[in-house]
């Protein structure tokens, strides 16, 4: 035990990577490769798990004068955030948002357009063309979504929900953010 402690320790102060290189060269080169790929993907702003980009709300945005939300009505009653678990709420709202985005894009996956605009080199490559069908959601995915959504609503509320309506509402923000005025309301999902 003492031998090991002496080896890993030592009085002389050394930098972490120097110590790793001396004691475990394989690990050292693994770390260098990891840092290299992390730097490359950061530079081209491409997230390839496990090389994450930790932006954390860093994009510079201007305060909008309108706000869009999705209101979910179950058997005619409004589903509120406090009615269900935080994660359940997140899953319902984010998947609804994705459903709406694809629905508004003629049921074509919005990611398709994003890849074409951001990485045309990848998009027009032969490899991408051959796998594109497998990595994008199609119209059948959009058609199947309401069933899955209904199943989640029943699971989260533990109630026999027969009627579901999801409305996309756009509000104008009033002075000092203290009031909101409804501008438009559109039914994007209706399940009987």
């Amino acid at each position: 035990m003492s031998k090991f402690g002496g080896k890993i320790g030592g009085k002389k102060k050394k930098m972490f990577l120097t110590k790793v290189k001396e004691r475990s060269p394989g690990l050292f080169w693994f770390l260098i490769a990891f840092c290299f790929f992390q730097a490359v993907f950061t530079l081209i702003k491409l997230e390839v798990t496990p090389f994450f980009l930790f932006g954390m709300f860093s994009e510079k945005v201007n305060v909008p004068d309108t706000v869009t939300i999705y209101r979910q009505k179950l058997n005619g009653n409004l589903l509120n955030q406090k009615d269900i678990n935080k994660w359940e709420w997140n899953i319902l709202t984010t998947t609804i948002e994705n459903y709406d985005a694809q629905l508004s894009n003629n049921k074509i996956d919005v990611v398709d357009k994003r890849i074409r605009n951001k990485y045309p080199g990848i998009y027009y490559s032969s490899i991408f063309s051959s796998v594109k069908k497998n990595i994008t959601n199609d119209s059948s995915s959009v058609n199947k979504y309401p069933d899955w959504y209904k199943q989640k609503i029943r699971q989260y509320t533990s109630e026999n929900i027969t009627n579901i309506e999801v409305l996309k509402e756009n509000y104008k923000v009033g002075f000092n953010n203290s009031s909101f005025q409804l501008l438009s309301s559109k039914k994007i999902l209706s399940i009987e």
């Binding site: 496990p50 990595i135 059948s140 995915s141 979504y145 699971q155």
Partner: peptide
Amino acid sequence: YFSHLFISQVGLNPILFQEIDPAYWLLMI
């Protein structure tokens, strides 16, 4: 478990959220 977050509890959402991340593309392929 109580938040229904296990895979068997979430179930297969037909609209998969792959975004521009080749690692997720690989799972879908």
